[in-house]
Nucleic acid binder design. Sequence first.
RNA 1: GCCGGAGUGGCGGAAUUGGCAGACGCAGCAGACUCAAAAUCUGCCGUUGGCAACAACGUAUCGGUUCAAGUCCGAUCUUCGGCACCA
Length: 825
Amino acid sequence: MERYSPQQIEKKWQQKWDAGQVYRTEMDEKRPKYYALEMFPYPSGNLHMGHVRNYSIGDVVARYRTMAGFNVLHPMGFDSFGMPAENAAIKHGVKPGDWTYANIDNMIRQQKDMGLSYDWDRKVLTCAPDYYKWTQWLFELFYKRGLAYKKEASVNWCDTCGTVLANEQVIDGKCWRCDSEVHKKDLSQWFLKITDYADRLLDDLDKLPGWPERVKTMQANWIGRSEGLEFNIEVPELGEKLPVYTTRPDTAYGITFVALAAEHPIIEKLVKDNPRAEEIKAFCEKARNQSEMERTSSESEKEGIFTGVYAVNPFNGNKVELWVTNYVLADYGTGAVMGVPSGDQRDWMFAKKYNLPIILTCQPKGVTLKLEDMNHAYDDKSGELVNSGEFTGMEMHAAMSAIMDKAEKEGFGQRKVNYRLRDWLISRQRYWGAPIPVIHCPHCGEVLVPEEELPVKLPENVSFDAGAVSPLAQCEEFVNCKCPQCGADARRETDTMDTFICSSWYFLRYADPHNDKLPFAKDKVNYWAPVDQYIGGIEHAILHLLYARFFVKVLHDAHLVDFDEPFKNLLTQGMVIKDGAKMSKSLGNVVSPEEIIEKYGADTARLFILFAAPVDRDLDWSEQGVEGSFRFLARVWRILDKFEDVVKGAPSAYDPETLTKDEKELRRVLHSTIKKVTEDVRDRFMFNTAISSLMELVNAFYAFAGKEVNPGLVRELASALIRMLAPFTPHIAEELWHNLGGEGSVHAQQWPGYDESALVQDEVEIVLQVNGKLRGRVTVPAGLDKEEMEKAALALPKAQEHTAGKEILKVICVPGKLVNIVVKG
RNA sequence: GCCGGAGUGGCGGAAUUGGCAGACGCAGCAGACUCAAAAUCUGCCGUUGGCAACAACGUAUCGGUUCAAGUCCGAUCUUCGGCACCA
């Protein structure tokens, strides 16, 4: 053999695998299925190291499962609608589609260079008409089920992107994509009713033991369920009942004012015949114009204006002032809040600023609080009630439910659950997305495009030089159409769908990617899905992963799929960083996968990225570390080269009983390595330690270099080593497999099993401790009982030395591990 | 503020159920090979003291439980991420 030269072997095998369609997958009811999936990329044009890491992990999982006997689905596609294609069109005058498809071609080439085991026949492109046809079909399904609606709302608008955004896409008041400030705009927009599924999306997180805790916590926080009481406060002057929501009904006797959001509809009524009307209107105007950042920061100053109108606390009949404020949110709860300064810090600050009265309703048990000594609200969730009528003296939790009972019994309130989660705004005023399949008819109103007319295709000749208006809205031949119901001249909806819709169901399409009758056939989707192992970045913890769960639940309810969670197990990989920072063009610390593969080969790139850190932690890129990984592969190559003739001439079986002591030990290392690698890959996703134990095995093998070894053992070792390397470094494994006379592809081989009896050691080293401190070691026959162990340990000179003249209190024996002598004095 | 991670040599990291802290790799040092270098192979490699045997110390800090703690408990600090005027 020549020396290890990846450039010569990798291309060769990639072509053979491609030609032999090695990774084609078909349904097979006889074998257990396994669906391994990496989050599909946006076709930016080039793979970055984050992709390389993602796909390397996924490829190990898929290849390991294949070897372990599963029928594995391992597909790849592209999330290929979205802004960058349109920006390229505006900037360089290329068509978004041309730009996108060219990028996809390049990225597929790079993915093939990595030697990934995808079934390319199942490739899914969300921008292809035969895909977005079904995205539109699913929109219509949602619409028919009452889960898609258009409404006028105050929405998030990004000027730079020229479109609205979902709440999930606003990060710290800024656009998730371009980082520019987001502001509110009143527009008529399409929403999906994800709030209908809030409870199930929250509760079913418990059905996902295979998800990282932090992702589940993030989703739970985002959904933000809270339980409380909604009750009516009378406003006698207006003859109105004003509903308010609280999670602290136990403090209801401490209401000293009522606060309204500046957008609250009752304000219109309030300002009629109100001497302060102009002032109030001006205040509301000012509050509404505050940026999202200012309004939602807990630091910003709480301001308000008294309306001159009073409200009545239904619990005790107290007459309290009604204020308009800048700190009550219009779209949470009822947009009106009871003000209890003694029990809520915000209300406290507000009351102090405007000199509103404060009534104490709760204090710690056995303590008497005095308002004049307090400098903040008492908002601990424990204590006893005071000044609370019939509830005075009651423990607060008991009081909470008693007070809610009272409100329900007397009919002015009821228990209520509220969510932080809002409906999903899916309209985008952009061109490069799936058109929303709706026609607006002057007579019939909103009409769905008939199913047989789908897809509503994107027109080709549109202009992108426009300002704020969507390119689709300017395309007359797209906009003008006939009403499918009455035939009248009508206008087509020009909004496209959020690309997160396209990615909310792509993993189901892989099960049946060429279906032209349905998004997917039921038997196929139920055979392959749900995804057994999903792998991707933590940045999708809320966005994509929440939306996809929502979609699957709706599809479940529509009887299109039998399962109601899309991803059984989730693995969130860490970032690839360099010099302590995320790789970015502006920092100039980007390492190009293409260059690394060219220089060291794909196997080295994959091995390093899997070895350098546990999968869920950030990984520091190190060129020297890459060198080390390359060295390891070259080392494997050389040792197998040395033993090539031995392996080829070896019998297929041998009797382990005939091995020498050293050979037996080598066999034990081999089998314990198989056990360790199997468990690390299958159960723990600890690829770094799996690889380190393969390195140890190779080190142990090197101790026999140049020596006479049982050929059967060498053959066993070489075969298992190559098969264990196959998921990590598929090319070198395939080459070595063939060099040593292996039949067929190494990737079609069975994963090596281990022999429990080979793991048993004749002798074990046990540790001697005195008072827990390590004092010596002794090698003893395996399987000694406690007394024998104790005897062997006590006989050691070290034991004598450290216990001399001291009283032995007791001796602890851990079989096969250690003896601890406890002494006094 | 609330919620969730993380903190171990010069560096990346290991220690899976409370049982030898630092596996494996990188960097470093030394030896072999070589005219020489590279490559390769072999050995050393937490800190302090000691020629050494060895001893003391050591997993962010302080305290606790235990024969035994990186691991469990309590408090604190640092750091990363999420949510945050959600009533």
